[in-house]
Write a protein that binds this DNA or RNA. Structure first.
Lengths: 114, 114
DNA sequence: TCATTATATAGGCATTTACTTATATATTCA
DNA sequence: TGAATATATAAGTAAATGCCTATATAATGA
């Protein structure tokens, strides 16, 4: 395991952010691939503003990055974040979120710009 | 690493609980030794009811256990909790909280019943 | 240029959170 | 038994949270 030691307060702030089912799942999804906002809207069946607000919190904390590709904005995990190794460790204790993306793919709702 | 896989919602609930500096530090302290409420009051310089309420949340979630010893009630970490391995992994990314207990000891404020 | 699609922001609202002070309960010991 | 100590609970409150609807901004393509 890569070991980064982070101050308690910083750890608490990251955990507070991830202490929400939606954001935690988002991070789990982003660990396997980039996603755009509309994909999250599909996955979570939640209003688009709500999704945007969750992503904003993650972005403000530096945990995710955004990149525009045409009309879409893709979010990805920031592997440079000091808490990234910690987050990886966390995710190891959770079920893989990939099936949610595969379900999207099966419905033809996956966005791809490559 | 011991690997327990837990449902996303359960993980989120644990992270929400630990997404508070006080509770996260409490768990860090309890990982190295049992503590009673008055010790926490000293360490955190916080009102006794406030400490009790934090401990109650941890106890309600089953993360810690309480055991009366005379007039004191000692709290300990519940190593049987399904999320305990996850918590251990978390703590590896934080500085050791022991010095806080050592400081107490130096002031003669550490309670011991053995 | 205009309609459509994708995303962000603003404002409102109900719920939760973390503290406070006051009080209740439990144990110890003279 | 009664005072002192340790802890829990109750009630109140300000701030934070997470959602919603409405609207603004940005890119696309006919």
């Amino acid at each position: 395991m890569e070991k980064t030691v982070i101050e308690v307060e910083q750890v608490a702030n990251v955990l507070k952010l991830l202490g929400d089912k939606t954001r935690l799942t988002m991070v789990g999804l982003l660990e396997s691939s980039e996603c755009c906002v509309c994909e999250f809207v599909e996955v979570f069946q939640m209003s688009q503003p709500s999704i945007s607000q969750h992503l904003r919190k993650l972005r403000d904390a530096g945990l995710v990055r955004e990149k525009r590709k045409g009309q879409w904005i893709f979010y990805s995990i920031n592997q440079q974040h000091i808490a990234y190794p910690l987050i990886q460790d966390l995710l190891k204790h959770m079920p893989d979120q990939n099936e949610k993306l595969e379900a999207l793919e099966a419905e033809g709702l996956r966005i791809s710009c490559d």
